[in-house]
Design a protein around this nucleic acid. Sequence first.
DNA 1: TCCTTATTGATAATAATTATCATTATCAGT
DNA 2: ACTGATAATGATAATTATTATCAATAAGGA
Lengths: 147, 147
Amino acid sequence: MEPSTKDRILSSWQDSLHRHGFRVTRPRQQVMEIITSSTTALTPQEIYQKSLEEEKFPGIASIYRTLEMLEKLGLIQQIHQPGGCHGIWPTFEGHNHYLICRDCGQMKVIEGNEDITGYISRIEDQTGYRVDDHWLQFFGTCSDCLD
Amino acid sequence: MEPSTKDRILSSWQDSLHRHGFRVTRPRQQVMEIITSSTTALTPQEIYQKSLEEEKFPGIASIYRTLEMLEKLGLIQQIHQPGGCHGIWPTFEGHNHYLICRDCGQMKVIEGNEDITGYISRIEDQTGYRVDDHWLQFFGTCSDCLD
DNA sequence: TCCTTATTGATAATAATTATCATTATCAGT
DNA sequence: ACTGATAATGATAATTATTATCAATAAGGA
Ligand SMILES: [Zn+2]
Ligand SMILES: [Zn+2]
Ligand SMILES: [Zn+2]
Ligand SMILES: [Zn+2]
């Protein structure tokens, strides 16, 4: 039985915690488990609500502390969306784009390998700005919600 | 003396309020003036702080109420950025992209006329999603901050 | 297993947003 | 221009989200 994608992420996150001298505690494991199990970007409050379903659950302060730590380690990021802003989502290698279902919030990560260098240099010429990063997010309806 | 872009926006906003049966009051005018004068996307609190510089200023509740109304009318929108999320920015005709200076927050609106339909249909094929909208935002340094 | 101390939970403090309601001021109709 | 109906305001209370505090707990190296 080979490890799932989620298990691989979780164990790499634990490694990262250890490497940086952070202890792997139960509350932290619970938060990491919830984040990596979710198909939608969750708010701190949503993560807390989900944790309440478990026999023993973290205090709300530990949720925030864990999220702060994970973000500093670069393991998670904030995803922005129309309406309910600021959902938590794992960070993956490289430059990515995001696809979000308006109905259920389900997210997909898309490798950002499109070539928009031409568009960017045109923008730089027009505006005098130097562009060093971009966000590209798509909104629509997922296959589950299309039916 | 012909009207400036800002004046044109302001008068179209007032028309919209009248058309929808909203009264054009002093607090609302102050908020609209601050939003249309700004080169950066402002938070409700920032708008309130700016309003304090005026002789007579709106209560904080009126700031929030005015923003809610303007958003419902489709005259403003929330712009998201890394770090301090949720700035207010006027909505313009058509589909636009945004260019934001990391240092000073100065924003530029870019007409979203580049063609990414090919990219979008590839995404739809890969994921089964139906894509109906996207956000494209560029981050970098403006010419003022480059020096 | 023991010890050090990072981390937690509980709770207080702060900050942001929304709700309440008596008073004020817009503006349609004279 | 004046008047009246009522939408909107300001002041403030209530709610919600986030951060800070600190004694008690538990992770993990020795
Ligand atoms: Zn956002
Ligand atoms: Zn969906
Ligand atoms: Zn990209
Ligand atoms: Zn700048």
